[in-house]
């Protein structure tokens, strides 16, 4: 089917339903900053309707992969297809949640204003957001549980609230595909639970959600699909098949202490997620 088909012989490659077009198809993607390759010949297929984590050590190229999919960094080689077409043609079908730290939260603007920015693409040039946009933005804020903060200046928000604002901005984009860069970074347990519930709701609606994630312990609990990345693609597929000790060691170079513990001492009444037991050994 694709020029790269011959290369895609990895276990658990994410193709489902034969004729169905993948939500995101990354082929032979290589990205380099100056002379240093950040992503090397990465092939990933994200089927529609999955909730996928991208995991890998620092500098593995997780954020770069997201940005390459969004056309924010220019690849040295390779191709990205969104629902079978290049990103430029599918822009409206992708919503993006950047890292919280990527903007200046002292910018003079309100929470509602930031959320409405998610609608700018649809509004087009010259048109200002009006009542309909306000309503949509307020609904999204209610959805993430901070409707009461709509008129706040954004510098008055806590880290978790900032993250919720970015999520609300992506929600108003109402896209079939969501790309999120570390939405759990620096948020408290309550917010993390709220965000997970939201992600799973999106998946239940048939949306495809791709999340850069750091906490290996929660991968089996939160996600059904996973990409293990360390410059190269180590493995991608259903969590049950791909999220193995062996693959993790290949990704992290054998430095995954808590996973070892979890396997040396198998959980007594084994729930579906054996890795969660190792929490004590986590970083």
């Amino acid at each position: 089917m694709s020029a790269a088909a011959g290369r895609q012989v990895h276990v658990g490659d994410g193709r489902v339903g034969g004729a169905d077009v993948a939500a995101i198809e990354v082929r032979d993607l290589t990205v380099a900053y100056r002379d240093r390759p950040v992503l090397w010949d990465v092939d990933v297929t994200v089927p529609k309707g999955v909730l996928m984590a991208i995991v890998g050590p620092n500098g593995a190229g997780k954020t770069t992969l997201i940005k390459a999919i969004l056309g924010l960094v220019r690849p040295a080689a390779g191709q990205v297809l969104i629902n079978g077409a290049p990103f430029d043609a599918r822009r409206r079908e992708v919503a993006y949640v950047p890292q919280r730290g990527s903007v200046d939260w002292d910018f003079p603007t309100s929470v509602l204003d930031v959320v409405m920015m998610g609608l700018y693409g649809r509004l087009g040039w010259l048109r200002r957001p009006g009542a309909a946009e306000r309503t949509a933005a307020l609904a999204a804020l209610e959805k993430v549980g901070i409707g009461a903060l709509a008129d706040r200046q954004i510098s008055q928000l806590s880290g978790g609230q900032q993250q919720r604002v970015f999520l609300a901005r992506a929600l108003v984009q109402d896209a079939p595909i969501y790309l999120m860069d570390e939405p759990f970074q620096g948020v408290d347990a309550t917010t993390e639970r709220a965000i997970v519930a939201l992600l799973q709701e999106l998946r239940a609606l048939g949306r495809t959600v791709v999340v850069v994630h750091h906490d290996l312990q929660t991968v089996p609990e939160y996600f059904d699909w996973v990409l293990l990345l360390n410059v190269r693609r180590i493995a991608a597929g259903p969590v049950g098949e791909v999220f193995t000790d062996e693959n993790l060691r290949a990704t992290y170079g054998g430095r995954v202490p808590y996973l070892r513990q979890a396997h040396v001492e198998p959980p007594a009444p084994a729930p579906a997620a054996p890795f969660r037991l190792g929490r004590a050994g986590g970083e």
Partner: peptide
């Protein structure tokens, strides 16, 4: 001015 990367992602 606020978030150029997000702007680029929606086609600005």
């Amino acid at each position: 001015s606020f978030d150029p990367e997000f702007g680029a992602s929606i086609g600005l």
